[in-house]
Design a protein around this nucleic acid. Sequence first.
DNA 1: AAGTTCCCCAACCGCGTTTCA
DNA 2: TTGAAACGCGGTTGGGGAACT
Length: 322
Amino acid sequence: MGRIPCCEKENVKRGQWTPEEDNKLSSYIAQHGTRNWRLIPKNAGLQRCGKSCRLRWTNYLRPDLKHGQFTQAEEETIMKLHAVLGNRWSLIAAQLPGRTDNDIKNHWNTKLKKKLTGMGIDPVTHKTFSHLMAEIATTLGPPQVANLTEAALGCFKDEMLHLLTKHRVDSQLQQPSTSSQANVNIANSPYAMINSKPDHQAAKDGTHVDTVEKIKLGLSRAIQEPSIIISNKPCWEAPQPPVNGFQYAGHSSFRSQEEGSPWSQSKCTRTTAGDQMGNLKLEDENGQESDGGKEIRNTSSIFNTDCVLWDLPSDELMNPMI
DNA sequence: AAGTTCCCCAACCGCGTTTCA
DNA sequence: TTGAAACGCGGTTGGGGAACT
């Protein structure tokens, strides 16, 4: 009963693919297509697992793939989609022609997360760190609030020290704060001090300790004085100049606090293999699936609702290729 | 120039769902 | 109907090159 195994594990080659292997796989698929991954390595004369062949094809060999650097427009799209979809890379990739989920995941983990952190924005929630501090503080009783600064510092200090010692923050952040920057609270946030001293100099002269103390102080202020959080919307809700080369567009799915985050009000839940179809389930606050419990069978339907989730033109979000 | 550390990304791993004998 | 394998996804790892000391 059941299927036969996809490959004999002992005779399977692993690791980097050679150009010859790539040629064999590409030419075989060009002739026969990708119908059965279990048979492809055997028929193509490859000592590879079918799964390995599939990954190599989808992530590297497919002729419609882009291999160059991500454009600023692509990065902005990734950030906007990530704010709504989270780490659902296949869904995000479906909106970026020629990019794979692996590509986007790697780019997010190596570049975009750091850029956001450097801007004082939590890459998970896409809100400013100080806003998060204030939100947490409002949910805790006074004794707990007293300990929050230390806890928060523990969470963020590694990342901050990394930025302080390794990365120069973009000069746009270093310029004197403008009124619009005040809206996003970057200038007021403890992370604004990233720019107070050249990173390498700070690392050399041992001012880390002083900097950590300043971060502590800034976090304390954010907690004790939530009023300094001018907007309780995520950073891109308020108008702002480009920061580090990015400019978030308005984002109407994230509304004010009383409306809650998109995850509490309209949660996207994974349907695993259904994801290949771009499926999402929308749930209300009671965990009930909206839309009569029907799955949305295509990502595009998400973007075609009357409720505009973001202000990208809908045609930019459609990728018929994938 | 040599050694060390950091960073990127291709490839692998493990899990949940779907397929099919 | 059953259960093993295929499939597809997100998370993680490690090799190799770049940057730094």
